[in-house]
């Protein structure tokens, strides 16, 4: 029983990390095709937004987290207006611009807040099972990650906004001729993506060291998860994260984390090779059969 729970806890923890790392990027890169190398910095903004607003205004953590997310959305909107909107349809140029943004943001945080900011304590407590003890907040993260994914799936696959957004990004010309304000759809979608990265930053802020490079811890995981999820990210994210998480946890369990890290990267290479449409392609194919 304890053993089974341990497996669930370890695997779930890894799953939650991959999912939450990927959610913002799933919108910005998965849907909008912008290679956002500044994704990590969006997460940084969310984390600093949470911690700094919590400290300065003495807010309780959940409210500080909401603040963090709002700040990231505003940050995303500004960026969209100034830079990103000139990059739609030029996905490869987005590499340079977002790399530049990433340099500016992480270095600005260093200049403004110094090399490190006082961290927060992880909320909730811990519980025991046999000889093991667990952080309650970590269990919450697992549940929350899955919940937010269900919400996103609903938003982008079931609501009229979702259909509009997907259609517009798929074919902006037709949407435009049908009277859709393409620019607005792009802006809102980008802001949602930024906000989701902010959610990730806010949620992980109390569990990590608050440094200007905090977001960079997520960047590799986020890209590999989104890519293995495939063309329809909200369908493919959970199986992709589950598969990668399983590879990582089991290899780390039997060998060591370095090999676990290498294994997850190799798994991505093989998935792209043998499942070019990613997990969402696989699911949609089996569903249509």
């Amino acid at each position: 029983m304890v053993f089974l729970f341990n497996i669930f806890y370890q695997f779930g923890d890894s799953l939650a990390f991959l999912l939450l790392a990927a959610i913002g990027l799933a919108v910005i890169f998965g849907m909008m095709k912008i290679i956002n190398l500044a994704h990590g910095e969006f997460i940084t903004v969310g984390a600093y937004g949470t911690v700094v607003s919590g400290k300065v205004f003495n807010l309780p953590l959940p409210i500080a987290m909401v603040f963090g997310v709002i700040i990231t959305v505003i940050f995303g909107l500004i960026l969209e207006k100034l830079i990103i909107r000139y990059l739609y349809g030029r996905p490869l140029d987005s590499v340079v611009a977002t790399w530049g943004i990433s340099l500016i943001v992480s270095q600005s945080f260093l200049v403004i807040f110094g090399p490190s900011y006082e961290g927060l304590q992880t909320p909730m407590g811990n519980f025991k099972l046999g000889e093991f003890s667990y952080s309650e907040y970590r269990v919450f993260l697992i549940i929350f990650a899955l919940l937010i994914l269900v919400l996103l799936y609903y938003l982008f696959m079931k609501t009229s906004f979702g259909t509009l957004a997907r259609a517009t990004i798929e074919n902006p010309n037709i949407s435009s001729s049908m009277g859709v304000n393409v620019q607005n759809v792009y802006t809102v979608t980008f802001a949602i993506g930024a906000g989701l990265a902010g959610v990730t930053g806010a949620l992980y802020a109390p569990t990590m060291t608050i440094v200007p490079s905090i977001g960079q811890a997520f960047i590799v995981s986020s890209f590999i998860t989104v890519v293995t999820a495939g063309a329809s990210p909200f369908v493919g994210l959970v199986p992709a994260a589950a598969f990668l998480g399983m590879v990582q946890t089991s290899v780390t369990f039997f060998y060591k984390s370095t090999i676990g890290l290498i294994a997850i990267l190799c798994a991505v290479i093989l998935i792209i090779r043998y499942l070019p449409q990613g997990f969402s392609g696989l699911i949609l194919k089996t569903r249509s059969k």
Partner: peptide, 17 residues
């Protein structure tokens, strides 16, 4: 490094002691 330093907060919240 900063990434690895996150261990301390996480071990405390898991009640490693």
């Amino acid at each position: 490094g900063a990434k690895q330093a996150s261990f301390y907060e996480q071990q405390a919240s898991a009640g490693l002691k």
